[in-house]
């Protein structure tokens, strides 16, 4: 009887692991400036503590458009309310002004630390301007943070699988990852 229960649980777990339908999207760089580079991936500055996300910067603040990274139309839900900042602020739990694209089965894709402008707000669009590159929330300098999570846990395969690492050029026509949604 115990064996039967164990087998049933095993089958259910295997089904749960296998049945995690998600769609592979494509994420390009967030800034249409050739001076934009990836400067943190799985670890802060590539050698520091755990990060599991991409940070991209072009050494500017409140100047360049911070674009939706996903290629194709997606629904970007905006969480705003943070005053303009380039070197950090305590706002929205450290995320600053940010957007979330909610996919299926707990998957999401987030872009953080926006410097809000007239473009900022919930919208459906294809690589449109969502605000400016800034440093609202937990940020030591202006940059774009992007992560891909399932049920709140950050994943790294979306950028490691396409070879994105520190120093990768993050111009808006360059593919940085294939997040699951």
């Amino acid at each position: 009887m115990k064996l039967k229960t164990l087998l049933s649980a095993g089958v259910a777990l295997a089904a749960a692991a296998w049945a995690s339908p998600g769609t592979a999207a494509t994420a390009n760089g967030p800034i249409c400036d050739t001076a934009a580079y990836v400067n943190s991936t799985t670890y802060y500055n590539c050698t520091g503590s755990s990060h599991t996300a991409l940070d991209v910067g072009n050494s500017s603040c409140g100047e360049w458009n911070h674009r939706g990274m996903l290629v194709g139309n997606y629904y970007y839900y905006y969480y705003g309310g943070c005053a303009a900042a380039c070197y950090g602020s305590t706002c929205n739990g450290g995320a600053g002004n940010y957007y979330v694209v909610s996919g299926a089965n707990g998957w999401d894709f987030r872009q953080l630390h926006f410097y809000a402008n007239v473009s900022s707000g919930t919208k459906t669009c294809d690589r449109c301007a969502l605000g400016l590159v800034g440093g609202t929330g937990s940020a030591t300098g202006p940059h774009s943070h992007s992560d891909n999570r399932q049920y709140g846990t950050r994943k790294s395969a979306w950028y490691t699988s396409v070879g994105t690492t520190c120093g990768t050029n993050a111009y808006c026509n360059n593919r940085l990852g294939v997040p699951t949604l």
Binding site: T23, G72, N73, Y74, Y75, S102, G103, A104, T124, L181
Partner: peptide
Amino acid sequence: AGIYFGHN
């Protein structure tokens, strides 16, 4: 399905 993942 593709843009809103059913949430709209």
